[in-house]
Design a protein around this nucleic acid. Sequence first.
DNA 1: CGTACCGTTGAGGTGAGTCAAAGTAAGTGG
DNA 2: CCACTTACTTTGACTCACCTCAACGGTACG
Lengths: 237, 237
Amino acid sequence: MGPRRTCAQIGCKIKECIDAGELSPSALGLLQNAQETHTYRRGDTIFVQGEVPTGIYCLRSGNALLTHVDAFKHKTGFRVVSQGEIIGYRSMFGEDTHAATAQALATTDICFYPKEAIVATIDTHSGFARRFLRTLARDRGPPDGLLLRGQHLPVRVRLMHLLSVLKDNFSETADDGMLTFQLPLTRRDIASMLAARPESITRAIAELKRENVVIFSGRQVKVPDPERLYVLSGQSG
Amino acid sequence: MGPRRTCAQIGCKIKECIDAGELSPSALGLLQNAQETHTYRRGDTIFVQGEVPTGIYCLRSGNALLTHVDAFKHKTGFRVVSQGEIIGYRSMFGEDTHAATAQALATTDICFYPKEAIVATIDTHSGFARRFLRTLARDRGPPDGLLLRGQHLPVRVRLMHLLSVLKDNFSETADDGMLTFQLPLTRRDIASMLAARPESITRAIAELKRENVVIFSGRQVKVPDPERLYVLSGQSG
DNA sequence: CGTACCGTTGAGGTGAGTCAAAGTAAGTGG
DNA sequence: CCACTTACTTTGACTCACCTCAACGGTACG
């Protein structure tokens, strides 16, 4: 393995904020000194719902799932995070305990930035602050999430919607013209994101295969006609 | 009617940001000069999904409902806004079109602050920016919203949850010891918030009345034992 | 005194949950 | 490399909460 690259070197969202903030070399140095890097294995928890946030996390590699457990102990996955994305900032800025648990879905390298370093940079660089406002505002507006969970749509359609959201992060190559990618989620994870049961996911997958819209083999996914997937899943763009 | 009070005089969230930002008199003057006040009647639209945001809105009185329409034309209400709260800022900071439509549920007075004025204040007052980050972060985290829409819970429980959220904003007096309040929503509105049908809401209401948990008469709501409502609806605090 | 919307009630159909069981893949230790 | 455990996945039969469709009463308003 070569030398560790910092988060800023892989074009993550923190980097975007740093660029927008036009940080001085000294301010940049302070941020980079405060940063720590950790590696997580599949299933490891990054932070836990209810804990007090101590900073924010930026994924260098791998991916993670954010889940929320309600008062009835129902576990609901609501977001898959992949390379370059930041997590844990909502609760930190909200000055509240973590509203979700983050777990690695695969081996994942993560940069941690302590709260004080981020807050200090925000206070001294308005461009950095404004960029964070933008990031926060773009995260989970009404469109995403609502479609995935509305029971007015059948599970099959919600699954297609999830796939067309995930494909942006995970699509690999189109060897034989098909859109192909590897799902980072178990059937159980998918079920928890769609507010459904694993059995229902299995049945929906079988149905999609029958209709030749999406072909699953294990976690390998093939989409013969991506355009059709968009339309059927209610994506406008 | 007496002289119009500015938004800052009724203790709204903008006021909180202004206080946190320690604005100079001149900066404060600029903000207040830029502000406009409008009155909306029941059903009037404040802004529409898809429009480009031009500023943010703060409710002086009355209340409004935020709704989202998906690609399948399903209209979903996801938040009731009341006095002192700000709307429209998520899309503005996200530099995107409005992700929701806001409509007045009753006669409603609203302060409008143009985008330029807000952005200018953010750029010059880090406390103001940080407070906005907090407000944004606290708005609609995973806990709220998920419970209301998860189909793993029966409509009756989701309705109880909605009531126990709304009662914070709308509860009036407990004349005869009961918690009493006026719902600002039609059955159809409630249904759209719970991802259910108006008929199902009617039936759930009848059921709750039978169990003596919540007593409806029209939009007048009485809760004999608020504690029981919390527990049954899965509120922890 | 219509017209329009809101709210209620009933009958019937169905998508998805539940329960139970068997098959498959993945990891562990001898 | 093979037993063994553990977790994930699939299948089938049954049940039910909610949706759909349809009709009707109440209230507001021009």
